[in-house]
Design a protein around this nucleic acid. Structure first.
Lengths: 206, 206
DNA sequence: TTGTCAAGAATGAACGTTCGCTTTTAAAGT
DNA sequence: ACTTTAAAAGCGAACGTTCATTCTTGACAA
């Protein structure tokens, strides 16, 4: 005899996760107390703990959603059999990251701030490290596929390792996220223009 | 009437900072308790608190040394009026980062793990953010100078923004650090080869 | 003796979590 | 249709623990 619908429960859960994400983005996982999360959610301690077994579980849920978000952005690269140059792909990625930030999975939360928290969390928790490794490996897989196609078209040396080129592409996105947050003077057009200047069309015959 | 010399005090201080760095690199700033730091240093609580006013002060000292380390690596780029291509400069930087890691300022501590902690710390502490912004701005200044010289030699379009090209270069280093820690499959030769394949000699006339 | 230094037990605040209780609500009973 | 019922949901004070920091004590050099 459930007292409320499953949908109700899912909504509540999402509310708690979003409330937590707001605080986490501002103060980080560890400087945010459960009292903070509870206050932000508008519920009581007992209620929150009915939906999540522990603070760590809330952190995991927030991290998971942030990573899924990233996965979707990178996954969109290769839709409809496109074969963009690395520079074009990076423009799409950087634009995708910035736009999702503002109207993304957590309304009003800069998801990249959460991503940075996840990076440092991965260094102390083997569980998080494994999960992050898997997801980021997949992100890089998408970049690798861009590189592979571009290489197949003869625009990059045949002996170049598409995996490492994918790594370099992912770096350019991660660095954008970091420098935008830490230094704060990056614009999407400026940054992508520089990438185009550095990489050109991507033409690099062997 | 000091009981010990100033040098003794400096050595003690350095010992505490290094001990703290060991723990911080493994567990992060916030999951490392003062008890951990105290135990690792081999001193007592009272002794440690004689040298540092608070945990935050220890974190600041560790962060400062890590950032100084990075600053030195990037500063070495332009010694003796060299004008490396961006790809060459990045090879030097990535090699510098990995080698300093093993025999750097904190013996036996992977300093890049501390760097990641600092990034996330900057998101919650305005003081750290300002300090990080300043230092990373300077790092990027070095990259910018590489770009500027390469541009002056006519290898890059005259209308490219050297500041943003510097940002992209810094991204490639930050991404290397991150992916090496999170995914763990990056090698220096592989990564730098990919950068060379992507950027070529750096030749990009307007 | 006097002042510095180190030790480690003591302290109080803050933390994540639990527990006993009240309220709500969907379904069963009439 | 209305009442009863019991399980689920919510509440918030209270709990035990852990934390950073302080304080008391004693040792040793000057």
């Amino acid at each position: 005899m459930p007292r409320v619908t499953e949908e109700y429960r899912a909504t509540r859960r999402a509310e708690i996760v979003t409330a937590a994400a707001r605080r986490f983005a501002e103060q980080g996982f560890h400087s945010t107390s459960m009292a903070d999360v509870i206050a932000e959610s508008g519920l009581s301690a007992g209620a929150v703990y009915r939906y999540f077994r522990s603070k760590e579980e809330i952190i995991a849920a927030v991290s998971e959603i942030a990573m899924t978000n990233a996965d979707e952005i990178f996954g969109g690269l290769l839709d409809n059999g496109a074969a963009p140059s690395p520079a074009e792909a990076l423009t799409a990625l950087v634009e995708g990251v910035t736009s999702r930030m503002e109207n993304g999975v957590f309304l009003g939360v800069d998801t990249t701030r959460i991503a940075v928290q996840v990076w440092s969390e991965a260094l102390r928790s083997p569980d998080v490290l494994q999960r992050v490794g898997t997801v980021y490996g997949r992100l890089r897989g998408h970049c690798k596929e861009v590189a592979r196609r571009w290489q197949a078209a003869g625009h990059l040396p045949a002996d170049a390792d598409p995996d490492m080129i994918g790594a370099a592409m992912l770096s350019l996105v991660q660095g954008f996220i970091l420098q935008r947050l830490l230094i704060g003077d990056l614009t999407v057009p400026g940054y992508t223009a520089a990438i185009h200047a550095l990489l050109g069309g991507g033409d690099r015959q062997a």
